[in-house]
C-alpha cells in the first residue's frame, strides 16, 4: 500500500465517522461542525484520489462551496439577516 492510498483511506474513514456523528446528533446546531468535518474529509478524498493538476482546483471549488453552504445554513438558523426590528 502506497502512502497516498493510506491517506485516501484515512480521509474516507473520517468522512464515514463524521456522517454517523451527524446522524446521531439530536441538536441541530451541533450537527454543523460535523458537517464541516465531513466536507474537509471529502476535500481530501477529491484531492488525493486522482493525480491530475486540475484535481486541486476541483477540491478547492468543493471546499469553497461546501463551507459557504454550511455557513449559510447556520446563519439562517441562528436568526438570519432579515431579523431587523
Amino acid at each position: 500500500m502506497t502512502p497516498q492510498e493510506a491517506a485516501v483511506m484515512v480521509c474516507a474513514a473520517i468522512a464515514v465517522y463524521a456522517a454517523i456523528r451527524v446522524a446521531l446528533e439530536p441538536d441541530t446546531l451541533r450537527k454543523l461542525p460535523f458537517l464541516n468535518v465531513l466536507s474537509f474529509a471529502i476535500t481530501g478524498v477529491i484531492a488525493l484520489v486522482l493525480p491530475h493538476p486540475l484535481g486541486i482546483v476541483a477540491a478547492a471549488a468543493y471546499f469553497v462551496g461546501s463551507t459557504l453552504e454550511s455557513n449559510a445554513i447556520a446563519s439562517t438558523y441562528a436568526g438570519g439577516l432579515d431579523r431587523r426590528e
Binding site: 451527524v22 441541530t28 458537517l35 465531513l38 466536507s39 471529502i42 491530475h52 484535481g55 454550511s70
Partner: peptide, 20 residues
C-alpha cells in the same frame, strides 16, 4: 444538512471518472 451529506458522497464519484 442531510442533503449536504448526500452531495458530499456524490462528488468523489464524478472526480473518479476523470470529469474534473
Amino acid at each position: 444538512i442531510s442533503l449536504g451529506i448526500m452531495i458530499g458522497g456524490v462528488m468523489p464519484f464524478i472526480v473518479d471518472r476523470g470529469l474534473l
